[in-house]
Simulated assay, not measured.
Amino acid sequence: MNNALIVYGSTTGNTEFTAETIKEYFEKNDYSVTVLNVTDTGVDELKKEYDLYLLGCSTWGDDEIELQEDFTGFYENLNKGLSLEGKNFAMFGCGDSSYEYFCGAVDMIADKVDALGGTLVFDALKIDGDPEEDEIYEWTRGVINAV
């Protein structure tokens, strides 16, 4: 059985809903899934062995890209000598396309993971507004097929 780790930061509940929906679909496809709110974990969790790591963060900020408040420390701690070489990642997040940097936090995190040697296995899921299960399932199916 494959295993996956989902770490998310959520303020309004949309990113949490997305994380739980991803978990549900992965479990239907023979994955063991650990879901952690970013407030309950740290980057050391990324040192553990999983077949896939999924990071979810909403985007805030009008004039610049701002990570979801709880995710900021996690993101900054990625710089502390962590190697993600040989690890598979996928990113997801919620935002509002009326802002200049729609889901920019997702791109920031993806760039950081890439710089640390992680492999991005599938295009990021960027949800505009409220998440819909069908959209999440379709993306999750693509991630599973890519791994």
Rank of each mutant, 00 (worst) to 15 (best):
Ser32His: 11
Arg141Asp: 15
Glu24Ala: 07
Gly104Glu: 01
Asn88Ser: 13
Ala146Lys: 01
Val7Glu: 12
Asp62Tyr: 04
Asp30Trp: 14
Asp123Trp: 11
Thr15Ser: 04
Glu76Leu: 02
Phe102Gly: 07
Tyr8His: 12
Gly61Pro: 13
Tyr25Gly: 13
Asn3Trp: 11
Ile65Asn: 10
Thr21Leu: 00
Leu36Lys: 05
Thr140Cys: 11
Ala124Val: 03
Gly129Leu: 03
Phe92Ala: 04
Asn37Phe: 02
Asp130Arg: 06
Pro131Arg: 00
Lys23Glu: 03
Ile127Asp: 09
Phe74Cys: 12
Asp107Ser: 09
Glu135Thr: 03
Asn14Arg: 04
Asp63Pro: 14
Phe74His: 13
Cys57Leu: 03
Phe74Leu: 08
Trp139Tyr: 14
Ala115Gln: 07
Ala146Met: 01
Gly129Thr: 03
Cys57Met: 05
Val38Pro: 01
Tyr101Asn: 10
Ala4Tyr: 11
Lys126Trp: 07
Val121Arg: 12
Asp128Trp: 10
Glu138Asp: 15
Asp123Gln: 10
Glu45Arg: 09
Gly129Ile: 00
Tyr50Trp: 14
Leu36His: 05
Leu54Trp: 14
Ile127Asn: 07
Ala4Leu: 10
Phe71Trp: 04
Gly13Ala: 01
Glu133Cys: 09
Ile65Tyr: 12
Phe92Gln: 01
Gly93Thr: 02
Thr119Glu: 13
Asp40Met: 03
Trp139Ala: 15
Phe92Ser: 03
Leu67Gly: 02
Cys94Arg: 13
Ala105Asp: 01
Gly93Cys: 05
Ala105Cys: 00
Asp114Gln: 06
Ser98Phe: 14
Lys126Val: 01
Gly129Cys: 05
Ile144Lys: 08
Leu36Met: 04
Thr15Asp: 01
Ile22Asp: 11
Thr18Glu: 02
Gln68Ser: 02
Asp96Lys: 04
Gly86Arg: 00
Leu46Lys: 06
Leu125Pro: 11
Gln68Trp: 00
Leu54Ser: 15
Leu120Asn: 13
Gly142Val: 12
Asn79Lys: 07
